[in-house]
Structure formats: structure tokens, C-alpha cells
Simulated assay, not measured.
Amino acid sequence: MTTRTLVAVLACTAALQAPLAHADPEGSIACGTTPEDRTTSRTETQSRSQSWLDERVPYNQNACHSNAFGDYRTDCSGYVSMAWGLTHSRTSTTLREVATEVPRADLRPGDALANANHAALFVRWADEAKTEPVVREQTGPDGQPPVERKWTADTAAAYTPLRYYKVVEDL
């Protein structure tokens, strides 16, 4: 085998292996992966997200947490990725690749609110006007566990409502 052929084979092998790595786009840390994005019910998103609340998983963009639901980065988008059952931890920006924008008033448990810097899982409305969402979120500083809290209407207005493309309604 010539050196040129060997270089071509190695380059091809690396290219074939790259998509399987599922590293996060920023390259900060890659956690475990699953074979495909799972179909997840709204109730499952709540159970999955509750697991990190119960375990008091500390926020850290450079760490992973593994439990019965997989191995995900312990930041805001890793938290939403885990709740949805994605193949890997996405970023607050790349969550849009597996979701569609929905009207704010149509948010349902298991949907998300996201912008370029943060993402949170929608739980329910705190008010009849549907302006103040109750969310679950993994937020810093480092070491802080996820929380469930009510956002103000002004805070919510800075986020885009998203629905995971493989979420199913509960029967």
C-alpha cells in the first residue's frame, strides 16, 4: 500500500467515524449518545426532568450526568435534551434542529422556551392569561441544581416557544 493510499484510507475512516461522535458543536464536552432521538410523551418529559431535580444534578457546562435516562451535559440545553430523549446534548441554538416553533399560547408540558443563550422546559402556565410560564431549568452558576420556577411575562417574551418533533400526547 502506498503512502498516498494509506492517507486516503485514514481520511475516509475519520470522515465515516465523525458523525457517530455526536460532540456538541462548541466542542466543550461530549457525553454519551443514544442511537436515535426517542419518541417521548409529555408525561415522560416531566418524569425525566424531575429525575434531575430529585438528584440535585449540579450545573456545569463541562460535565455529564448519567442516570436511567442517559448521559447528558449538565447545562440548560443538556437538561432539555435529556427530558426530550435526544441522541446527545444539543445547545440552546441547535435544539431548533429537532423542534418547531409554536404559538406561545399553545405551549404544553414538555415544550421548551429557548433563545441563543438559554433553554428551559415548559411545565405549565402560572396565570390564566398565559403570560407567566412555570419552567424547569438547569442554570448556573456552577454547582447549582436545576430548579422549577415561574418566569415573568417579560422574561418569557425573550424566548421562542419550541415543540420537540417526536413528542406525543398522553393517552
Rank of each mutant, 00 (worst) to 15 (best):
A114H: 06
D24I: 10
S81Y: 03
P58E: 08
Q50F: 01
R149Y: 06
P19D: 03
T33E: 10
A156D: 13
A21H: 11
T43Q: 08
P141I: 09
R104P: 11
H65W: 14
D111C: 01
Y159F: 08
T94K: 00
E169Q: 12
N117S: 13
R124S: 13
D142C: 14
L162R: 00
T139F: 15
K130F: 10
F122E: 08
W52H: 02
A112L: 07
A112D: 07
D154N: 11
L16S: 02
C31M: 07
L107Y: 07
G78C: 05
W125L: 03
E44R: 05
E137S: 13
H88K: 14
A21R: 12
L113N: 00
G143I: 13
D54S: 01
G143L: 05
H22F: 15
G143V: 12
E128C: 01
A120G: 10
A158M: 03
A68N: 05
W52R: 00
E101I: 13
D37L: 02
D170E: 06
D142V: 14
Y159H: 10
G78F: 11
L20P: 08
M82G: 07
G27N: 00
T139K: 12
Q138M: 15
P103Y: 06
A30W: 04
P109H: 02
P103T: 08
K130W: 11
A14V: 10
H65C: 11
S66H: 14
L20C: 07
T91P: 04
A63H: 14
R96S: 08
R149T: 06
W125I: 04
T131V: 05
L20R: 14
A116E: 14
T152M: 01
S77G: 00
E97G: 01
D111W: 05
G85F: 10
P161R: 02
C64Q: 12
E36M: 03
A83R: 00
G70S: 04
N117C: 08
C64D: 09
E128K: 09
A153V: 08
C64Y: 11
K166C: 06
T94G: 01
G85I: 04
L113H: 03
E148Y: 12
N117F: 13
T40K: 00
S47P: 06
T45A: 02
S89H: 09
K130V: 13
S89K: 03
V134Q: 09
G143D: 07
G85D: 02
A8L: 15
Y159L: 01
R90N: 05
P141S: 04
T2I: 08
D127R: 00
G78L: 04
G32N: 06
R4H: 15
P145Y: 09
R108M: 10
H88Y: 14
R108I: 03
C12Q: 10
A83E: 05
T13M: 12
A14M: 09
T34G: 13
Q17A: 14
V147M: 08
D154T: 08
C31A: 10
D75L: 07
